[in-house]
Nucleic acid binder design. Structure first.
Lengths: 151, 151
DNA sequence: TTTCCTGCAAATAATTTGCAGAACT
DNA sequence: AGTTCTGCAAATTATTTGCAGGAAA
């Protein structure tokens, strides 16, 4: 049975301790990335993370960020979602949520994953398919954009 | 009010006629792309379309394919969906369907859009968000992959 | 010290764009 | 003729990979 995933409110140090217990090394890059994610109020793309840590750690390379995001996801600390066009977005697994993305203005709304429980049941019953609402985004038109539509 | 969108069973010529009526030109590239889409049993990526028409029309450039897919979509003939990772997939608007994509094996299942009517109602009521089930894919694990899971 | 991690540079994959000439209508 | 398309080459965006040196445990 795997180590418990850090819960809401976990500090960067808690997450790093989790890594240590899993046998992964705690490096400057990982510390920087985890801090950036803990500080991020919501989700961030790989590039945004690289930019955010560039002030404090200018030498950390973008490829290191990508490699560590992948590793941190495999260790259960992070999850990522595809927003349709453009870059994937990452957030703490403890802070899991689904996304609604506006096709017109690009805004990404965070919504609780429970909203998909019914769809989940239907897809499983009819197709034997287990949906993963954290991994994809629902595209459509947000309320403000809809209201400025042509009549 | 826009011209009616070609219905199921439309031939390539019907679609091309539709283009003419909308004031768009009928060129070799567009004919080739529309034929490829009508012949496609399901959906195809831009690259697959470019490859498919390369035999009959070797000179048609990939960038022309991209430009025309965009134009044909704007004219209501085609729609595209994002499958998570990788390239977008196109199909005839008359043949509209949603997608379930397996995170493990990559298979894309085509499913009727009506499966999302309930989610649609919920998202609209709770967030004023109008979902577009043709434009995104539901990621998860398909039945065969699930059954070969570790216990 | 041994294995894992990192920077750097280059490679990929999926599109997009500028431009001058070619093709529809 | 006049506007729209197209090929070609180069630029973009997002991400991945090879390799040799550097750092955790």
């Amino acid at each position: 049975m795997p180590e418990a995933i850090p819960v809401d409110g976990a500090t960067a140090e808690h997450v790093l301790e989790h890594l240590r217990h899993r046998g992964a090394r705690v490096t400057t890059a990982r510390r920087a990335i985890v801090e950036a994610m803990v500080n991020a109020q919501g989700h961030r793309t790989a590039d945004e993370i690289a930019a955010a840590i560039h002030d404090a750690y200018p030498s950390i390379n973008r490829s290191t960020v990508y490699r560590n995001l992948e590793e941190l996801e495999r260790l259960g600390v992070l999850v990522h979602a595809h927003l349709g066009h453009g870059a994937a977005t990452y957030h703490l697994a403890a802070n899991a949520h689904s996304h609604l993305v506006c096709e017109r203005c690009g805004v990404a709304l965070s919504v609780p994953t429970e909203l998909f429980s019914e769809l989940s049941t239907t897809m499983l019953a009819q197709y034997g398919f287990t949906i993963d609402p954290l991994h994809f985004s629902v595209l459509g038109i947000c309320a403000p954009c809809r209201s400025t539509d042509a009549p």
